[in-house]
Structure formats: structure tokens, C-alpha cells
Design a protein around this nucleic acid. Sequence first.
DNA 1: TTGTAAGCGTTATCAC
DNA 2: GTGATAACGCTTACAA
Lengths: 345, 345
Amino acid sequence: MRIGQATIKDIAKALNVSASTVSRALKDYPGISQETKKKVKELAEKLNYRPNAVALSLRKSKTFTIGVIIPEVVHFFFSTVISGIEEVAFANGYNVILCQTNENLEREISSVETIISNQIDGLLISFSKETTDFSHFKKLLDHQFPIVFFDRVPDLQDTVNVTVDDYSGAYEAVKHLIDQNYKKIMHLAGPKNLLISAKRKEGYTHALKEAGIAIDENLIRECRIGTQQETYEICLDYFKDETTRPDAVFAANDVAAAGAMKAVQELGLKVPEDVGIVGFSDWQFSAMMNPPLSTVSQPGFEIGERSMQLLIDMINSNKEEAFVPKTEILETALIIRGSSSRIKK
Amino acid sequence: MRIGQATIKDIAKALNVSASTVSRALKDYPGISQETKKKVKELAEKLNYRPNAVALSLRKSKTFTIGVIIPEVVHFFFSTVISGIEEVAFANGYNVILCQTNENLEREISSVETIISNQIDGLLISFSKETTDFSHFKKLLDHQFPIVFFDRVPDLQDTVNVTVDDYSGAYEAVKHLIDQNYKKIMHLAGPKNLLISAKRKEGYTHALKEAGIAIDENLIRECRIGTQQETYEICLDYFKDETTRPDAVFAANDVAAAGAMKAVQELGLKVPEDVGIVGFSDWQFSAMMNPPLSTVSQPGFEIGERSMQLLIDMINSNKEEAFVPKTEILETALIIRGSSSRIKK
DNA sequence: TTGTAAGCGTTATCAC
DNA sequence: GTGATAACGCTTACAA
């Protein structure tokens, strides 16, 4: 109250009318004389009156605020999603409360708790790598609380999800490598418990099988940490022995791909002549690498927009209709750049 | 209320005591019998009682929520700052409402409005490139409303600011280029109305003067849009004529530097042999470019942390003490990479 | 056309 | 030790 906002009561007192009259006048309710309405509106304007959103929230049990829970803000893909969320939220008069979990389950649970006691109208979630138990979400879902999961979606019945077609994105990427005549393609995979990791791996294996290439489990390596350094070290190891080394890498994300490229180039191998590399996500840096990194782009902004729109639909729906479980799958796009193009047309 | 939260009244009714007794029991107020306290706490636990933060906010005129207004979420530097803000907020029980302005003044004004009617406790702001008039902030400041400006700070009296030493960051960068024997250094400058742009330009001119190099206004070019494409085109133009072309670029940010590098390399010039390039901000991609981009790193995370801490101090201070105007300046660090190192040691 | 009163969930202030 | 009441700012039956 430092800001000394005027309230309806202030206006009522000043004009010698009741608070309800002021309230009605301000909202153009029928049955208020033109004169009163005019007086009220003028004074409100003069006092720079703004309705107190907290009081409204309490009264209406609706806050026009939604919560977003994500693993990390400093992550190109997630920041893009947030941006999409924010746009739709702003356009619809919603506020966005942001919580990052730092991929930490405990913090995720705590965020859900505090955000809920703030009476938010709904929740957008991409859960942490540590999350294998979903009971902290289940509790809410059982109460019909509006939640949309995006990108990383849980293995639960009856949820509303927005994700991308990780499977076919990966499939296209690996098919492209095969088309470029790479024979021994390794896969830097994401954490096992994420569905997106599994889907990408599936796309990888399917493309190989289809081309009649046998799956070699030794060529698939799970990356738990997710840093460039991690895959750099892994690849130094994989590529140092020239008799057994792969001739291509399909990485589950661009940071992993960048680590691979660094390792390969340090070993004196040429990209894409000796080794082809394709990443996933189209981070901002990918186009600026040398050679530019081929990758599978995900429509982060659209994921954010669509998730927020679905959430608003759920919030506004009286009951069941918008709560029918569904998973919307947005399309990925293979972006072919220098790191995987060795065949001239 | 979909979630069917239990209230104090529910507990009171169930135990046949008054609401005030329940309230006191839950908060371990003195003068409550052990027995009552026990009963209340047990039932609260059982019903999974959580205090309604909205009701508390109304009662106490304090929401434990702060607002963050930034130009863009999808921006490495800003996402880093947000991350720092979020960490300190979380540690202190504050929620963060996020608004992006997309560098649009109108939206900035509107965000301030809505966020204020939500009775937030304070505001963290980095204003848009379009913002030259500060009356929408002034109004709040005049009411002693807690605001901390970060990175882009306004030309106003009596504000609390957190920024980095843009001047000396730029100075060090250009001095380094001179040390590397570059003679004709151009500057891709940021938008004129941002103080940070002016400071960086100042550092640039000072370093030149100190080295006895005359300032050539033709070598200073303001970039309004801020995309890679913009500086790419500018540089294609500047570097095509080999008789007049510069031999180095100091860019006010890394994206601009990346555009310059692309143009220069396309013209067949070698970096760093023919042209040295230094950027500003140490974006994630900078280390991954080829050659890796020299740049001036800004402590984004610390800026966020420090800003949020100052804001909390202001919120908690009874009056004047924490409101003394001040500008905290954090240190930058020159990161020398391949794009500007042509002298062997 | 306007006023009164109750209520959203909580707590501070008096009573008893 | 505990309860009743008022108040935070607003809306909305219900009265007048």
C-alpha cells in the first residue's frame, strides 16, 4: 500500500454514495443514473483508481495467474517456450509465475506446493530429469486441477500434453545421415527416464533397421549430465581408435552434438567429410558453428503458445469437455547444414 | 477452488472451536492448550491444509510476489539474469511474475499497470530500447514503491540500480585489439538511448585515444535492430572495399559480432589474421564459433541475484535506509579467444 | 436508482 | 484458553 492506491471506498466516501454504487457505476451496470456514473468515473480517473486484483481474486476464487514449472530458464528451448506462453498469457490477461527446478525433484515438489497455495488458476509443467514418481502431480489431477504438460510428458493416464514428434524428428535425422552414406552412426542419447529420450532413440533404431543396418548397442550411449564437456569426453574416447570408430553422430541435443564436434575436430577428423553430425533442438548457436550444425528444430514458441491456450480452455471450461486427455504433437523439421552434407548434388 | 482446499473454517467447524483458535494453534501462538494445538495440527495435516495466500495478501497488504519486466526472454543474458533472480526469490519465499515487453514501450507501460494492480511487493526492470520517457516508472518511484533497475538503468535521480562496468569492459576489449596490432577498429554500437551503449562507446573511444589513434566517426555505426542479419549486411558493405576497410571490429554484443564474422569470412578474409573481432556478453554460442569469439563476459546470474537481494532489502526496510539511491557496478571480464589472437607469445 | 449486508480466508484486538 | 468481531477491497443478492 506504499503506493497509496485509491479504493472503491475512498471514491464512495468522497462522493457520498455507497461502495456498491461505485462498483456498479464503474462496470456500467444497468440501473445507475448517468449523473452518478459520470461523477464516479471522473473521480476514479482522477484518483487513478485500479481495482485491487488480490481482493478480486479472493472474492472470485480466480487469480488470472498461472504457474510455469520448468527445469531451467537458461536453456534456449525452454526460454523459447516461455516466450510463447507469455505471449498468449498477456493477450488473455493472465499473469505468469515462473519457477525453475534446476532439474531437482525436491525443488519441483516445493514449487508445486507454494504455487498452489497462491491459488493459481492452472499449471504448465515440464518436469525434471529426476522425476520418476508423479504423485505430486497426481494429487492435483485427481482434483481436476488444470495442468498441461509440455515437452516432457508423464506416463500417466488422463493428462493433457503438448509435445513434438521426437520419434519422426530423430528418424528423419538418421535417415538423412544414411542417405549421406554414413555407415556407422552412433547415438548420444538423453536420460533414460524421459519419454523424449526414448522416442528419439526409437527413431534412430527404426531408421537403421529400415536401411538394413544392424543395431549395435555399443554405439548407443546415454548422457546423463547433458553438458558439452560430457559428450566431448565420451567422443574422445569413442573416436580415438581408428579401426573401430563411428563415422557419424546423432545427438539427442545440440549441446551434446557440439561436444562431439569439438572432440572429433580435435582428433584431426574433418566434419562432414570424415564424420557427419546431427543434433536436436536447433539452439541459437547451432547455425553459427563451423561447420554449421545440422539439427532437428522444435517449434518451442508454438509449444508454449499451444500449451497456454489449452490451459486457458481448461480453466474456462465448466467441466469435463476440455479435460479430455489428449496429446498434441507438433511437427519437427530437419535442418540440413554443413555438419552432415558431404554428397554434392 | 476446484482443488477443494480445506480452510481454517473447515477445521474449526470439525473440531467445534473458533476460527481464531485454529489460527493461533497453527502458528504456535501462546495461550493455547497443548491438547487443542495437537488436535488442530493433526486435522490440518490430515486435510492437507495450506493457508490461502490470496487471503493473507489481502489481510497483510503483502503478496510475497515481485514482478520482473524485461525486453526478451529468449536472450542469453536476460535468461541468465532471470535465473539469478529466481534463485534468490525462491530462497526467500518470493514468487516471480514475468513480463516481457518485446522491446515495446506500450507493452512495457501496460505490464507495469497490470502488475501493479496485482499488488506486487516490488519490481525489477530492464526497460525497452524504445523507452526514452520514464514517467510510467516515475509515478511509482514518487510513491516510494520499491524498484531496482538492472543492466539498462534510467537517467533518473534517486533510483537503485545494478549494472556492469560497460565502460571498462569495452575499454579492455579495444585495448586488447590494439595490443594485437589492429589499427583500424570499427565499432558496432548499440541503440543510442541506452546508457550501456554510450558507456561501451566511451570505452572504445577512450582506448583509442589513449593509444594515440584518432577517432573516425565513420567507423562507428549504430545498430538499431540488433540481429545478426543487420550487422552482416552492414559489414558486407564496410569490408568490401579493400582500400578503406577496417582490420578489426568491436561489437556491442555477440550477435552483432557473429554477423560481422559471417560477413568478413564470406568476403574471403581470415579471422583473426586479417580481421580481429571482439563481442560483448559471452553468449552461449560464442565459445562454439569458429574461430571462437573473444568477448566481454557479464555476470548475468550475479546481476539477477544482487538485484533481487536489493529489492528484498527495500521491501523489508521500514523507510528511507534501503531507499538511498545507488548504482552497484559489477565487474566484467575480457575473455580472449581465437577471433582476436593473432600474435604468438 | 441506490443502499445494506454478507462473504471470499485470514488474523489482530478485544472480550470473557 | 478461547471466542466474537472487525477489517483487508470487492461483488452481489436483497431491500428500499
